[in-house]
């Protein structure tokens, strides 16, 4: 199985504020779309599931073919140090895209460590 992953932070109102395609598998554009399509579709399940459990980490909520979707639901937009930094930025409007390159590098570094 290809060790590829797509990491997306979705804010309220379904707005993806950060997307990163991480992993070592050769990138195919179509595949990247497919990842996003699956993640987008999984939001329906997440939306329902998030209210039935206290856990912030919902293991594999959805799957399609070999791709598994796991979700980390955060309470008030905070989960990880870098993200907190972003969200604490007074200039950041909730809902707009995260464009910080620093954040991007951090995410990719973390991804390399765990994949």
């Amino acid at each position: 199985m290809a060790s590829t992953a797509c990491f997306v932070i979705v804010s309220k109102n379904d707005i993806p504020i950060y997307e990163a395609e991480v992993g070592s598998a050769p990138k195919k554009e179509e595949l990247a779309y497919q990842h996003q399509f699956i993640l987008h579709a999984a939001l329906d399940v997440v939306q329902d599931l998030a209210w039935t459990t206290n856990a912030m980490f919902l293991k594999s909520v959805d799957r399609f073919n070999d791709l598994v979707v796991s979700v980390y639901v955060t309470a008030v937009l905070c989960c990880e140090c870098s993200t907190v930094q972003i969200f604490l930025n007074p200039l950041y409007l909730p809902g707009s895209r995260i464009t910080s390159s620093h954040f991007d590098t951090k995410v990719r570094a973390l991804a390399r460590r765990y994949l």
């Binding site: 109102n13 379904d14 707005i15 990247a32 779309y33 996003q36 399509f37 987008h40 809902g95």
Partner: peptide, 8 residues
């Protein structure tokens, strides 16, 4: 601007 999954 709900659900602006521009790629999709």
């Amino acid at each position: 601007f709900e659900s602006q999954w521009s790629t999709l």
